[in-house]
Design a protein around this nucleic acid. Structure first.
Length: 565
RNA sequence: GCAGCCGUAGUCUAGCCUGGUAGGACACUGGCCUUCCAAGCCAGUGACCCGGGUUCAAAUCCCGGCGGCUGCACCA
């Protein structure tokens, strides 16, 4: 049986298992009407915190990419598990783990052939027989073909990040060629999980919200850090120590390697709290060395404690260093660097080759271009060699003083090119949405309530006539129209008793209900009811739309409204 | 991917062993009633996961698939 939260989410239209009429497919969920609004509100909260307030911009890119992208990024090679299956009992194992455990040697750099040989000597931990087949790789990326004929291999992206790295030069230009800058993307990513389970926790198609923060590796401070430096963070370090500490202290003590980590951990916590997750359930866990992704130098996961699944990872904040930009530089032959100016230009004396281009051209013809390039980029070693021997060998040609000589030049250097480093907070929106649902779930007298924050709830307001009579209905419908005109999601219901209608909207987490009753006809006031306490206040029909808008936006709280009245 | 258990309206479930008209509760829809927290009355919609086999006859027995749960394995 499915758990209560998932059951409610499916029954009341937050999510549906996908492709049900054809038997369903594991690892895919539809966002139903209420879930789609909830997801959008969570994403908009993320945009507010990680884009608008930070001055970072969001981009949207294709979800299909040509093979080259993931060859460069390392996903084709590294996004795989070497598996081996016992021919006797059909049990599958990670081949490298098997070898490491039973032979006590490191298998991380072994080829599949080597592993296949070794694995034959190992008894199956399940049935005890030596019956392992060959080691095969299982790549978690979905493969597809671009265009007719299947000539060009493509993959569905396993993370949104690569698109941003590929666009580095464009985005650097857009950012007025200044570090640091941040670019975000909210979009779908795909991983062909071996066994997706646990509802929204492990999906084959999921939504990521990612920020790539590009910075000069020699300057790891971040101005805005002081805004969040006193935020308390619960950390679980690689050494398995768990404690609470302020962001500032964690950086000062070197637990977090720089202010940027401190800043994004604090910002992440703020986001999770603002969508309605209890801060007591949030912790940041540092990845173990062997757990790190192929691109990561360090990584802290934000984990949320759930009743259903225990601690689950909802955010990964990774220091990707210069791994990705360098990888794409190498594979695409496009330079991906930022120019960082020095505070003052530096004058340096250096030796360079002065070339006799005419002579080189005449002598080496077509090869000249290549030779010139080599000599222009010559390093100290080569120049030294020339000074010692009187000639150098470049591109298999010998060049002596007829072609070049050494001269000393003074150069004013204004700065240098650096490959920016990247710190990447990456959010799993679907998992966060589950945490939001679970955090909001309550039971009251046997009735189920989703106690969303007012600005996160999919439907913000319900409007009811106390009983289904025309004179009350007309007023209620007019209020409904006015509320909707403000861009607020509102619903109307006149069926069944008022108590039943309150219960119905409590179950989908509508925070406020307006009821038109017989007093409304006398004094033009209506009641506004708050979901979490069932308390009511009377507000004039003239004011109620403004008041409700403030309540929904969180500008005032219901308790404050109650005090005023 | 392996193993065990499971799959009946929107939900929870009876029926399955022992083959023969699939029953209930809640929810939902229409109507009546109803002056604030799942009231009542009347009427109604709605289901055997898919495919194959056995049989005169399959929700029920058998096989395969799909899906779910649990365990193992995996999870950047």
């Amino acid at each position: 049986m499915q758990d209560k939260v998932l059951e409610l989410a499916i029954r009341r239209g937050f999510i549906y298992p996908s492709y049900e009429i054809y038997g369903g497919v594991g690892g895919f969920y539809d966002y139903a009407p209420l879930g789609a609004i909830l997801k959008k509100k969570i994403e908009d909260k993320w945009r507010k915190i990680f884009c608008i307030e930070e001055g970072f911009y969001e981009i949207h890119c294709p979800t299909i990419a040509p093979e080259e992208v993931f060859i460069a990024s390392g996903h084709v090679k590294n996004f795989v598990d070497p598996l081996v299956t016992c021919e006797n009992c059909r049990e599958s194992f990670r081949a490298d783990h098997l070898i490491e455990e039973s032979m006590n040697i490191s298998a991380s750099n072994m080829s599949y052939e080597e592993m296949s040989k070794l694995v034959k000597q190992i008894s199956c931990p399940n049935c005890g027989k030596k019956a392992f087949g060959d080691v095969y790789s299982y790549n978690l990326m979905f493969k597809t073909a671009i265009g007719p004929g299947g000539k060009r291999t493509g993959y569905l992206r396993p993370e949104t990040a690569q698109n941003i790295f590929i666009l580095f030069n464009r985005l650097y230009e857009f950012s007025r060629k200044k570090l640091p800058f941040g670019i975000t993307q909210i979009g779908k990513a795909y991983r062909n999980e071996i066994s997706p389970r646990q509802g929204l926790i492990r999906l084959r198609e999921f939504t990521q919200a990612e920020l790539e923060y590009f910075f000069d590796p020699r300057n790891e401070s971040i101005d805005r850090f002081k805004l969040y430096e006193n935020e308390k963070l619960r950390l679980l370090t690689r050494e398995n120590k768990e404690f609470e500490i302020t962001a500032k202290e964690a950086v000062e003590k070197g637990i977090l390697i720089n202010e940027i980590f401190g800043y994004f951990l604090a910002l992440t916590k703020r986001f999770l709290v603002e969508v309605g997750i209890d801060e007591k359930r949030i912790r940041f866990r540092q990845h173990l060395k062997e757990e790190l992704a192929h691109y990561a130098r360090d990584c802290w996961d934000a984990e949320v404690f759930t009743e259903r699944y225990g601690y689950i990872e909802v955010v990964g904040i990774a220091d990707r260093g210069d791994y990705d930009l360098k990888a794409h530089e190498r594979h695409s032959n496009v330079e991906m660097k930022a120019f960082v100016s020095y505070e003052k230009p530096v004058t340096i004396k250096m030796k360079v080759f002065e070339l006799n281009l005419k002579e080189i051209g005449k002598t080496f013809r077509k090869k000249a271009k290549e030779i010139i390039k080599e000599l222009e980029n010559a390093d100290e070693k080569l120049i030294e060699e020339f000074e010692k021997k009187g000639f150098v060998k470049v591109c298999n040609e010998v060049l002596d003083s007829r072609f070049l000589k050494v001269k000393e030049v003074e150069k004013k250097v204004h700065g240098e090119k650096v490959v920016p480093h990247v710190i990447e907070p990456s959010f799993g929106i679907d998992r966060i949405l589950y945490c939001v649902l679970e955090s909001a779930y309550r039971e009251r007298n046997g009735k189920k309530i989703l106690s969303f924050k007012p600005d996160i709830a999919p439907i913000s307001v319900a409007v009811f006539p106390l009983v289904s009579k025309d004179e009350l209905k007309d007023i209620a419908l007019e209020l409904l129209r006015k509320i909707r005109a403000r861009g607020i999601y509102a619903i109307y219901d006149e069926k069944d008793s008022i108590g039943r209608r309150y219960a119905r909207v409590d179950e989908i987490g509508v925070p406020f209900a307006i009821t038109v009753d017989f007093d409304t006809l006398k004094d033009s006031t209506v009641t506004v009811r708050f979901r979490d306490t069932t308390e009511q206040v009377r507000i004039s029909t003239a004011e109620v739309v403004d008041v409700v808008e403030e309540l929904v936006n969180g500008k005032i709280k219901f308790e404050e409204l109650k005090m005023k009245k």
